[in-house]
């Protein structure tokens, strides 16, 4: 009887090849390796635990169904990350929450006014640990609107270019630039606020 492959010690490209040939155990190992990473990306965009879990699961199912299309141009986790990102964007489009009375709608309609606001200076003070800063950044991200958060997550974390974000979000490059600028200003302002409140900056 042939010996079972050592999945846990196998290199990622080998696992992908096995999975492509229908080996579910190899695919299970890939899921085990990257499930948290995929969940993080879904959570960063959706800010909802249950939705992020569901979308992560869907992303893995889609990945299995489309494995033949993966030719290693990007790394496997990057490819997966793109799949889950697309699913999140579809979900956001589907939800199309009616929040026209929100500040976001007003800001979208009055771009030049918002852009005249001063960009706060943020100084990541010395002594504030990277982890602590990450938590504060995460909390600030949660306060952004879906559109602003999505654009900053896609740019900063998913490392899309302006053009790609515009394509994914079905909007113009100018709108992407404007949203990104506003999102950064809000982030700077929120971070300054929280650091000040905690007495970490003057």
């Amino acid at each position: 009887m042939p010996e079972e492959p050592a999945y846990s010690s196998a290199e990622e490209p080998q696992l992908v090849e096995w999975a492509k040939s229908g080996d579910m155990q190899a695919f299970e190992e890939l899921v085990a390796r990257y499930r948290d990473r995929i969940y993080v990306r879904a959570y960063s965009i959706m800010r909802n635990e249950d939705l992020a879990v569901d979308l992560s699961q869907n992303a893995w199912v889609k990945a299995w169904q489309r494995l033949e299309q993966f030719h290693g141009e990007a790394s496997f986790p990057t490819w997966l990350s793109r799949i889950v990102t697309n699913l999140c964007l579809d979900e956001l489009r589907r939800q199309k929450r009616a929040r026209m009375d929100s500040i976001e709608a007003m800001e979208e309609a009055t771009g030049p006014v918002e852009n005249r606001m001063e960009l706060e200076t943020v100084d990541p003070i010395e002594g504030l640990g990277r982890e602590e800063l990450r938590e504060r950044i995460d909390a600030a991200l949660a306060k952004l609107s879906d559109k602003h958060r999505t654009v900053i997550v896609l740019y900063e974390f998913e490392q899309f270019e302006y053009r790609e974000i515009a394509e994914k979000m079905g909007t113009s490059i100018g709108t992407v630039m404007s949203r990104l600028f506003y999102a950064r200003k809000r982030m700077a302002s929120l971070l300054k606020e929280t650091l000040k409140r905690d007495g970490l900056i003057e």
Binding site: R35, S56, L133, I137, V153, E156, M187
Partner: peptide, 28 residues
């Protein structure tokens, strides 16, 4: 200022753990 904000955001995505067990996730 924009450079500073970019610097802050770089690699700042908070790591998280899937809130359900790996076995359950895989079974789904």
């Amino acid at each position: 200022r924009l450079t500073a904000v970019r610097g802050l955001m770089a690699g700042a995505e908070l790591p998280r753990t899937l809130p359900e067990s790996g076995d359950f996730h895989w079974s789904q």
